[in-house]
């Protein structure tokens, strides 16, 4: 589903955010991406959403080489990737329902169909009764769940999340993670960037670690950073996540 091959990203100011990163994520996997802030997690997610382009290397998502997608095709690509943001990126001037409906409206789904699918998504995140409220009336955890509903309403095969539990207390955080696991169980490939190591340790999924722009493979049980050599080639199979 996701293939990074020797990907580097250097920003115009000279900062090298990613250095020759290679990894492969199978369809249906659930993977965590960890690392200190500034380690390159956000950059990696931005590359997958085509918010940024790599300086070097190839990225393949869903069989499509992202380098070959021209700018004007980017919107159509993004409709097939659900993204959950740390700051939710909700619109406060409209209702929960309208926030979740936005991707469907953009994709040109018929109005009747929109109602059905938005309610299905809200039901899944447990906010069906709050569809008429505005996001400002909701708690932080509820806002994040609206963000998740919006990310999955289009039924994307790939779900990306950038620090989805960043501002939540531990109990709410594990609720959110369980939600992601549920989507993963129906076949959605999930990739979550998070620095909440304790939370990740409880969930036995594959973990990718970024340190100063380089990628290390390993779960939390293997101790500190650098316990394994950096993954710079695709030769070693790294499918440690749940298999289908």
């Amino acid at each position: 589903m996701i293939l990074f091959d020797q990907v580097s990203k250097r920003y115009p100011q000279g900062h090298e955010a990613l250095r020759r990163v290679s990894f492969h994520i199978e369809r249906g996997d659930m993977v965590f991406l960890t690392g200190h802030s500034g380690a390159g997690k956000s950059t990696l997610l931005k590359l997958m959403m085509l918010m940024e382009r790599p300086s070097q290397g190839q990225i393949t998502v869903g069989g499509q080489n992202l380098n070959r997608i021209p700018s004007r095709q980017i919107p159509y690509f993004r409709r097939h990737v659900g993204v959950v943001f740390q700051n939710h990126q909700l619109l406060f001037d409209r209702s929960v329902f309208d926030n979740v409906a936005l991707p469907l409206e953009i994709a040109g789904v018929a109005p009747r169909e929109i109602g059905r699918r938005v309610r299905a998504a809200l039901d899944k995140v447990g906010l069906l009764r709050k569809e008429k409220m505005t996001p400002i009336q909701l708690s932080g955890g509820e806002q994040q769940r609206v963000g998740i509903a919006r990310a999955v309403v289009n039924k994307p095969p790939l779900l990306l999340a950038d620090e989805p539990t960043g501002n939540l207390d531990p109990e709410l955080s594990s609720d959110i993670m369980r939600l992601f696991e549920q989507f993963n169980q129906v076949g959605v490939t999930v990739m979550i960037a998070s620095h909440d190591l304790a939370l990740i340790a409880n969930l036995r999924h594959r973990v990718l670690r970024l340190h100063e722009g380089a990628m290390y493979e390993g779960s939390m049980y293997e101790g500190q950073l650098g316990s394994k050599p950096p993954v710079t080639s695709l030769k070693q199979p790294t499918n440690r996540g749940r298999s289908e």
Binding site: G62, Q64, F77, H80, P157
Partner: peptide, 15 residues
Amino acid sequence: YKGGRGVGRGASAPD
């Protein structure tokens, strides 16, 4: 949608 080549396409095993 309209010329959009989705992530779902080109994948080996159809879901």
